[in-house]
Each structure stands twice: as C-alpha cells, then as structure tokens.
C-alpha cells in the first residue's frame, strides 16, 4: 500500500465512519435506556435524509444550494425526525414495552417496515438527487485531495456527538437517562418521569440519525428509500464493536468500522463487492470473541 492510498483510505474511512458513529449513537442510547434494538433506526436515518432533501429544495429558492441551505435542512430534519422518533415510541413501542421480548422485537421490525414501505410508496423507489454546491476547494496531502466539505462533515459529526456526550454526562436529564438505563423501576420510585426520559432519548437518537442522513445525502448527492437498511445493520455492527449501550463506544466503533471497511475493501483479494461481507464477518467475530465490545460492560444478560 502506498502512502497516498493510506491517506485516501484514512480520509474515506473517517468520513464514512463518522456517519456510522452518528447512527450507532442513537442505536446505543435507545438500547441503553429500554434495552430495545430499534430496528427502525436505519429507516429513521433514511427518513431524515428525505426530510432534509425536501427542506433543502424548499429553502433552496432563497438560499441557493450552498452551506446555508444544507444547515437549514440539517436542523429542520433533526427537529422533524426527532419528533417522529417520539411518535414511533409513543404509539408503537410503549404499548408493548412490558410484553415478551419477541413481541417487542417484531413490533420494532414492523415500525421499520412501515417507514421503509411508506418511503417506497411515496417515492416510487426512485433515486433522488441531492444537488449541493459546496465547492471542491480543500487541502492536498501528497497526491490526495481532501475537501473542506469532508472536513466540515467529520467535524460536525464530532461536535454533535460531543454535545450528546456532554448532555448525558453533565445535565439533569442526562443523569435521569443514565438512571433509567440502570434501573427503570428504581428510577420511577425516585420520582423520575420514566416515560418522558424515554421519549427524550428517542428524540435525541432520532435527531442524530436524521443529522447523519442529511449529511450522508448531501455528501453522496443522492437519497433512496433503501439507504437505511444496510446503514442500520452497519450502525448496529459499529455499536457492538464499540460496546452497545456506551456512548463513547458507539463513536469509537463507528470510526473503527469506517476505517476497517475502507482499508478492508482496498486489500488486493477483497473487492468492494465483498465490503458488506467483510463488515458482517467483523460483527460475528466480535460476537464470538468480545461480545461486550471495546468499551462496553457485560451484555451477556440473563433474560
């Protein structure tokens, strides 16, 4: 591997990895609080990208298709999709919260399929262009050109995740979230409004996924109803690698997975068509040898 290739794959890996990390964070937060694998999370990311595209096209009339419009789309999408997450929790997950685990999982799957099927029905399965004009200026490291856009995307992802970490570790609501994740019953006895904390968790997790969706849409220039499926799987893998339930773990896992994927698919004997196999292989290896992930606590829980 030449130096250029290493730098190039490092840059690619960090960008993709920061998207993974954003999505994995929401997965991990929801899992931490109500121990639910939110299958709909990948579809929430997809919905975020579409809402972002709609807002982007709408405000584009006044703001053009530069940074200002992208930021507007990002914030609007995070708000709208965050609320969507709360609605899903309220009407799909809360009624089955005390049902057997299998019912909860199938319900989550149903919610995911409803979002996915809804997007298919609304868009007819077409790819939509996300035509941004963010410029190609940037810096050159050896022969590799890294645009400012790419750097800003990674930086914004890091800022969002840092903000989330601060929120969880420093604020009153963050403390409540941690309490609920440790013991829901005891938290209720301590006067914590558990339902509200769960709703808040869904809001924040979904908003992060939507942020990731808008960024990915703007970066790749295209949105599609099926984009959330593989993303959901990979975000889960990232969450497992980092240690599910752990916020820094999700970030670390996301970045690691991004790097693993970009370096893995540039190896001479693995082409890019095998990239996804590579990722799931990593997931299975982690589950065999280190199911708690890098930063996680014990997950081998007796039901």
């Amino acid at each position: 591997m030449t130096f250029d290739l290493v730098v190039q794959q490092l840059a690619n890996g960090l960008i993709v990895g920061s998207f993974y990390a954003l999505i994995a964070l929401g997965y991990s937060m929801v899992f931490g609080v109500i121990k639910l694998l939110n299958f709909a999370h990948g579809d929430i990311y997809m919905t975020g990208a579409f809402v972002g595209l709609v807002v982007f096209s709408a405000v584009g009339v006044w703001l053009g298709n530069g940074w200002l419009a992208v930021v507007c789309a990002l914030l609007a999408s995070m708000l709208v999709v965050g609320l969507l997450g709360v609605i899903i929790e309220r009407f799909a997950y809360r009624p089955v919260r005390n049902a057997p685990r299998l019912s909860i999982l199938i319900t989550a799957l149903g919610a995911s399929m409803v979002l996915n099927g809804g997007a298919l029905a609304l868009t007819g399965g077409r790819h939509f262009a996300f035509n941004t004009d963010l410029g190609y200026s940037g810096i050159d490291i050896s022969a590799v050109h890294i645009t400012y856009t790419q750097m800003i995307l990674v930086a914004s992802a890091l800022i969002l995740m840092g903000g989330m970490q601060t929120f969880i570790s420093r604020t009153m609501y963050g403390k409540a979230m941690r309490a609920v994740s440790i013991d829901m019953g005891a938290s209720r006895l301590m006067g914590i409004d558990v339902d509200r904390v769960i709703a808040l968790t869904f809001f924040m997790g979904s908003a992060l996924a939507a942020g990731g969706g808008v960024m990915a849409g703007a970066y790749y220039g295209s949105v599609h109803f099926f984009m959330g499926f593989i993303m959901g799987l990979k975000a889960f893998t990232a969450a497992v690698i980092g240690g599910i339930g752990s916020v820094p773990g999700a970030m670390l896992g996301g970045l690691l997975l991004g790097l693993l994927e970009s370096f893995g698919s540039s190896l001479p004997f693995v082409g890019s068509e095998w990239r996804d196999v590579f990722v799931f292989g990593a997931l299975i290896l982690f589950l065999v040898f280190k199911p708690t992930g890098i930063l996680g606590r014990s997950v081998v829980e007796r039901v």
Partner: peptide
C-alpha cells in the same frame, strides 16, 4: 453457536446480516 449464547436480540440482527451475506 456464537450468537445463541447472547441475548436473543443479537440473533435477530446477526441472522439479518447472514441473510444478506
């Protein structure tokens, strides 16, 4: 073998990945 030792949720997602593989 690797996944059934863990919570049943893991099986769901690993089988999802396996189906794709």
């Amino acid at each position: 073998t690797p996944t059934l030792r863990l919570r049943s949720d893991y099986l769901a997602i690993v089988t999802l990945g396996f189906g794709e593989i």
